[in-house]
Design a binder for these strands. Structure first.
Lengths: 123, 123
DNA sequence: ATTATTGTATTAGGTGCTTAATACAATAGG
DNA sequence: CCTATTGTATTAAGCACCTAATACAATAAT
């Protein structure tokens, strides 16, 4: 069972969750994903919601669907690497953009970031 | 007219938009806000949606409501400073958390951040 | 060939967000 | 006192997301 945020659609969060696992290697290229029904149970959501997330991931080229076998992580490692790079870049950009009105200097923001990472590390 | 993201409720985005303007001093302490109806027109949304955002901001202690005069930014500058610190901290934490699975070293993440800020600056 | 497992599609109902159209309440300002 | 302006409340409608229950389609495994 996973905790979801109320502010964003669950299927998007699931898509990102699995996408990140693929991009970090937790789900290796070619490995088999659990079935829609199993994932739904595991995540504590409706199968339809999982289905939407998986359609998303397939559209991104991160997974492949085999009619009755199930789904597997793509073998195309460059697609995975590209996805990872894009996602990280997007998150960094969004972060920078969200703090833009505060006019931080790069050095100061880096300091804040380092401090936060040290604290998180301690967790 | 402002551009809103589809993924989060508009009233939340408006609340943040005005909140940030207060925290950055764009809306100084004690200054008068536009009326609900004017803000709705200006932002291109329904008055009810603006109303929800403003109720939010009042709950945060950032604005005060005067029955028929309208609303003003709080005079309590420490409340504003506290809000700013909390918001920035939250955003940094969320950012760090969102990239946690990728296991970046602080130095590397700082480099990525700096690069992104330089590019953004050029805009 | 049969069966169980897989993905897929459909229908219905509930909830929250947003808009629209009103109406009411309170009071500053003339 | 009157009036315009302010905040506030209500009702109805549409839409997206999510759940639930069910059914169908395809095929690997037996």
């Amino acid at each position: 069972m996973v905790q979801f945020t109320a502010t964003r659609p669950i299927f998007v969060q699931i898509s990102e969750l699995i996408g990140v696992r693929i991009m970090t290697g937790a789900y290796p290229p070619g490995s088999k994903l659990a079935s829609v029904r199993d994932l739904a149970t595991e995540l504590g959501v409706n199968p339809n919601t999982v289905q939407r997330a998986l359609v998303d991931l397939e559209a991104q080229g991160l997974i492949t669907t085999h009619r009755t076998i199930g789904r597997t992580v793509t073998e195309d490692e460059s697609a995975i690497a590209d996805g990872r790079q894009l996602l990280v870049k997007q998150r960094v950009q969004d972060f920078v953009e969200s703090l833009r009105p505060f006019n931080y200097r790069p050095d100061d923001l880096c300091d804040i970031l380092r401090t936060c990472m040290k604290e998180e590390e301690a967790t």
